[in-house]
Design a protein around this nucleic acid. Sequence first.
RNA 1: GCCGAAGUGGCGGAAUUGGUAGACGCAAGGGACUUAAAAUCCCUCGGGGUUCGCCCCGUGCCGGUUCGAGUCCGGCCUUCGGCACCA
Length: 847
Amino acid sequence: MEDVLIAKGGTLITLIFLQGSYLKLEEKYNPQPVELKWQKYWAEKNLYKTELSARKQNFYCLEMFPYPSGEIHMGHVRNYSIGDVIARYKKMRGFNVLHPMGWDSFGLPAENAAIKHNVHPSDWTYKNIEKMKNQLNRMGFSYDWEREVTTCNPEYYKWNQWFFLKMLEKGLAYRKYSHVNWCPSCATVLANEQVIDEKCWRCDSPVIQKKLEQWFFKITQYAEELLLGCEELTGWPERVVLMQKNWIGKGEGVEVDFEIEGMEEKLRIFTTRPDTLFGVTFMCVAPEHPVLEKMLLDTGILESLKSKYGKETEKIGFHTGYYAINPMNGDRVPIYAANFVLMEYGTGAIMSVPAHDQRDFEFAEKYNLPVKVVIIPEEKSDISNVNSVLLNEAYEEEGILVDSGQFTGMDSRKAKQEIMKYIEEKNLGRRVVNYKLRDWGISRQRYWGTPIPIIYCDNCGVVPVPEKDLPVILPEDIKITGKGSSPLLESEEFLNTKCPKCKANARRETDTMDTFVDSSWYFIRYCFKKGDIDLYSELKSRDSELNRWMPVDQYIGGVEHAVLHLLYSRFFTRVIRDLGLINISEPFQNLLTQGMVIKDGAKMSKSKGNVVDPNYLIEKYGADTSRLFSLFAAPPEKDLEWSDKGVDGAYRFLNRLWNIVFKYHQKFQTQPRLQIKSISDLQPSSVPLYRKAHQTIKKVTTDIEREYHFNTAIASLMELVNEIYTFEPDSEEKLEVLRFAIETLLLLLSPFSPHIAEELWEAIGNNPSIFEQRWPEWDEAAAKEEQIELVVQVNGKVRSKIMINAGISDDEIEKIALEDRKIKEIAGSKAIKKIVIVKGKLVNIVI
RNA sequence: GCCGAAGUGGCGGAAUUGGUAGACGCAAGGGACUUAAAAUCCCUCGGGGUUCGCCCCGUGCCGGUUCGAGUCCGGCCUUCGGCACCA
């Protein structure tokens, strides 16, 4: 108490001398030492360790893990800043927060680096992980590294192999022939991204398609469930859900069997337009269709057609010489083989209705095939001879059936149903559902991936590696040349093994898994601590860690993963559910897809030379400024236009904050606290800042809760700083109000710019860590304005603004408005038709 | 082609449920401080008019609903994403 009196007397120096322990704050904001100081403190205190106390609610905050390229980029800074704000905010709100990070560390770039720089993919990858981990820590992100996941670690990919075996048992993994991109010159398989303009990325030779036997996951078995599950994705952006739905691509229709003249076999087609069945003038089958083999055609023509299969824009085909009979009307129509018919969808054969399908129309024009109109628009239904009119394009809309036997005159919607019924009754076909979704090919003819745990034995055939022998370790002593077949084929030690069944000599599968397998369940792995885990025992545990944390409460990542990664993860979660490991189906409750970081109107990329290096930003401005700007410049889901000047602005803001705290921090350290009980006890000049502080708590809190609108939350923090700058603390009470405003400000700022908040929090006499503080709460009475500005409109135009007391009655508002000098001038003697009053805001006088 | 999102000052953006368009920041202009500059602090800042009181116009374009529309409805235009022979 004596100390305080001295301080009030103004002899601060004496006080410091007496106490000898006040905290020193640098006069100028120098971010680097401050940030390093607190990063060290947080690490030593293990502040981000995940806790699981039953008293608190759990919150799982997850950001998409990076590929360890060696350098973080602005996209990471943005993604992880968003996640970090949420994690820190939730922690301060009293949740147990799981906020992990890891490495999607298998994949092609490591092999490319190996070829280019002659380093082992493993060394290259782990070195990169170390570098990036340092960068992420330097950004001050609050990860619990005890749960770090590294997918290229056998401890992790062992479970990829385990899931593979489980799926094999359940018939969800199978082998079939499939195409790969093949470069004849490098004699190697190419990934899709290595094919540029149908040429090899390295040697420019044309890429050909080669058929290899490969492993698939039967995701199509879950197609309907994945589609239905979309309805539960209420916390996802609608467009992402829509993209998922479109990707699954459910099509309801009918399969119809057409007899082939002179063959036992029937030709089965799929159509969603049974109402056009009477308009069939020819049939088309995919070049791969098995019926073609029985037709004993010229293989040369067929092969050339196969080479034009798929992506060609021009439609090519040839007549097989065979004819089919339309079961509806007995029409005899030619069967063509055509490059535009896909073997993978439906039955690989179609009925062609050129009058009502644009693709068939183009094909018919090219090969001079007849066009038969069977549907006409309702408004033209009086035209008598429709087929004498030449079409310029197919009529694909619905309409009225003509020339369609007993169905003539029906509208197409009804006809669809009636014809389907007819087909089923007459046993000509059946209703079916088709999906665009294909099974997931997981085989990659690559080295740096999870070995597929399969052994090929001459006696026993395809033999799965027994679970007890997992993991099948990726051999380290290999040579990567980029040419020739997979490096695993060259590794005798890996390749040669014994058959687990008959112990004879056998070969291992040399393909590795698609890296999407790794990322399809890493969020599940995070629920356990680092090190060897035992999913077997999890199978038996009812109240497992897994069920306590899953689903992810908030997932944050780029929209580029809107389909594949998210769909595969939803698939895996269901498989894992069906194994009995987890009791939920949807892994991600809420999804935030952040926008790209743009500079000079284009996505940042090395080739465009418009990249901003986060290292440079950290060096020049520090992590707090980098984080703050990337959160302030745009709301998270929108693209962010980079602006060097804007970064200056964020830095300026933190400097203003620093300077104002520096000005008062010694006073706060020595001044005793006063209790502010309620806003009504304050002297009038204290009220505005106190009120502003409460309003800011409300604004920041609701902005975070409302779709994470950090940009407006930060704007309101800036407003509070501006208000603090105009405040003169010339009394003890006002100094206390100032202290309250600054403490509030630091608490609210802490998730965004954690280091400076922590430093200033300590400097004004509080104990660290600020992250052990509770998030502030606002007092509605204090946040409410006493006086409001009443907007007075006449016929919807603003004519006057009057300050009134909040909460006065409508009658009084009306009276005040009509007595206003300006309103009298305008409204004058005119008759008032109507008066509309919006509580506390506006009055509109209609004359 | 199909599906989706978005168009607001010189720029990034704000306006939460149909109720003051332009919060906050950047840039620009002016002033204070300084021998000077930087930094900092203060003021102005959509366009046009003005008797300096205010008035008119303004959220891609055209129309509609409403006392009142950036916001809702109908029709266009532009930009950006996703899918693309899926029968």
